[in-house]
Design a protein around this nucleic acid. Sequence first.
DNA 1: CGAAGACGGACGGATCAGAA
DNA 2: TTCTGATCCGTCCGTCTTCG
Length: 265
Amino acid sequence: MESHRKGDLTEATVITELKRREIPVSVPFGDNERYDLVAESAGDLYRIQVKTGWLSDGCVEFHGKSSHTNSGGNVYKTYDGDTDFFAVYCHELEQLYLVAEDAFETEIRLRVEDAEIEQPSINWAVDYEFDEQWPPENGTNDATDDREAIVQTLRERGVDVIDARDSDAPYDVLLRTPADDLLRAAVRRGSVTNGRVRFDTSQTVPGPDDIEYVVVDCAERGEQYLVERASYEHTMSLRVTEPEQTQPSINWAADYEFDKQWPPR
DNA sequence: CGAAGACGGACGGATCAGAA
DNA sequence: TTCTGATCCGTCCGTCTTCG
């Protein structure tokens, strides 16, 4: 079967699977969007890109990238931020998987058969089965756990941190400088996507009137970053690898490492 | 060192718009 | 009407990196 028909079949199958679970599904008008479906859970809308998974060496494999050809050859583009989840349907197994867009870079293999050598890095397919992943967690408990862990790490650095969790204050913590100043800060978990440390810059992060800093903890890089809230307006990411095109406006993660920024001048 | 994951690329197919 | 380039897609494969 040619690729487009197979893709259509997969999309139809995924819609059927979602409807069978009584999940509200919408299909964007036209095919100009980089997601195929919108699914609703508890009032939240999630963009879903449907992918066909194929069985290879005991793994369900799929690509989280699109490719096309131009005069310069092949061009590959990831769905960086254009979708929330990949719904992967494997026709051989008749199984639907749900993988978060930020769970990998360009490709992931979900192991369905036992590996000859057990490795902690194995992505077991059962962990990604749709019913295991849906509904997406709203993150409330995770956020609390994250904040505690981040605060703990800050204290291990010797920073005097006052946790404002139980207050109504817009900030998460107060950071006491060696000069005895108290700085209002939000703490957020960061993750590496396409060579950039990204963190939540949505409306849940207070504005520069309410906080002075955002502490970003990136477990993947084992690093904490200190970002001045006034240094960005809406979005912010920190470059960890060289981009294809160098730009003067790049925010290099190394410049924001906590130890380099603390204490603030 | 070997196995598995990650990454990048080649290739084939379809559709559409614009130019010749 | 035909051709070409751009924009999508899925499938397959080679190579590099990581880890036990």
